[in-house]
Design a binder for these strands. Structure first.
Lengths: 202, 202
DNA sequence: AGTTTGAGTGCACATTCGTACACTCATAGG
DNA sequence: CCTATGAGTGTACGAATGTGCACTCAAACT
């Protein structure tokens, strides 16, 4: 049963490649099969439909994202500056390592089949909640309400998503990439300054 | 030559409808033609390709967005709070009036044909620059560098884009919609607090 | 009123699509 | 080693796709 796993991987990879300048919804089962070097009907041995394939890709992409998040958290940084710099650094590096996956998520987030869109929204919401619990452990955030925490997390995640989307448009190691990372760092700092001064200005 | 204009509009509308749960790249010329009630080849009298159709839709969508921006700017608000509340209000209302266009933009921003993606990126960048010049006129921003201005504008636009995407997932007039608007207001305020305290903490 | 123009028609074609069905043959388990 | 399972094959089909070509006929222009 190890051949099956190999073909399955090949299908996932092929789909990721073929989507590169297209969309899941414009991806045909036959293209995938041809790319893999397999007859069209063999596709059904692994997935019921392109949509199921998409769900598998979402799952896979976010598993690696979660691994990244754990990495960032494990370095128990002392201050916000270090957390921010570390996060942006890891984020940019990780995006480069998993370019196709991140590009796939960015594309399907709003253009994919409904089930895929929902799966991505769920994953991002989860990401956001995990960030909120981590934020709550940082100094200075103890006066925030649960809502504040949610709002700040959402803002941070949005900034990170935008950064990912920016980095994806830049060539690896390019000036543009560095500028996007710089912008992200500045934005996250501004954002934290605003959030930390928040309760006093209500 | 007024019949041509009518059919052209019908094609744009039909494309907007048919894209609703799909993508430009998965939209066939024949579907559009059938929806309009016209023979497939008649499509070519108006557009060279689906991609050209997409560019026209982008153009059209942003024309209305720009009109909205002008509206917001025309009310010369005294303070940040009023500017923010007014902007969020107008934004949400406008998204509701032009749901299909905004959903189209959200989808094609990353999943559309390259030319369409680039056109959207250009329009958003323009939006950002116009916001920057408006920000520069507000009190308290005179100490910001050009880079700061750019970074803040980018952050604000990202938050607004995210808000649009959220509002689109909520039913009109629903609690969820109100919550998204509230979140946007809070986020923009936090963000401005951070930005206004920025130079002192460099 | 007569003529020109070009928006929309009708048909035709080669491709590509998803999927049904019966098959073969590699390989995992007895 | 032998057998049963199921991954991959081959063929076949109707439907949908983009586009070429010659056409008609409403409406704008002289």
């Amino acid at each position: 049963m190890e051949r099956k796993e190999r073909t399955r991987r090949a299908i996932l990879d092929a789909a990721l490649d073929l989507c590169e300048d297209s969309t899941l919804m414009a991806l045909s089962l036959r293209q995938v099969a041809k790319e893999v070097g397999v007859v069209p009907t063999a596709f059904y041995r692994h997935f019921d439909s392109i949509e199921q394939l998409g769900l598998a890709l979402v799952e896979e992409s976010f598993v690696s994202l979660r691994a990244m998040m754990r990495d960032v958290r494990r370095r128990n940084d002392p201050g916000f500056r270090e957390v921010i710099d570390g996060s942006v650094d890891v984020l940019v590096r990780h995006v480069r390592l998993q370019e196709r996956q991140f590009a796939f998520i960015a594309r399907e987030r709003f253009a994919g089949p409904p089930a895929v869109r929902e799966a991505i929204a769920r994953e991002i919401a989860l990401f956001e909640r995990e960030l909120a619990t981590d934020l709550a452990r940082l100094p200075g955030t103890d006066t925030w309400s649960g809502d504040d925490l949610r709002v700040v997390s959402n803002l941070i995640v949005n900034a990170m998503v935008a950064t990912v989307e920016n980095v994806l448009t830049a060539r690896p190691g390019s000036d543009a990439e560095r500028r996007f990372a710089d912008t992200a760092r500045t934005q996250l700092r501004m954002l934290m300054i605003g959030a930390l001064n928040w309760d006093s200005t209500r």
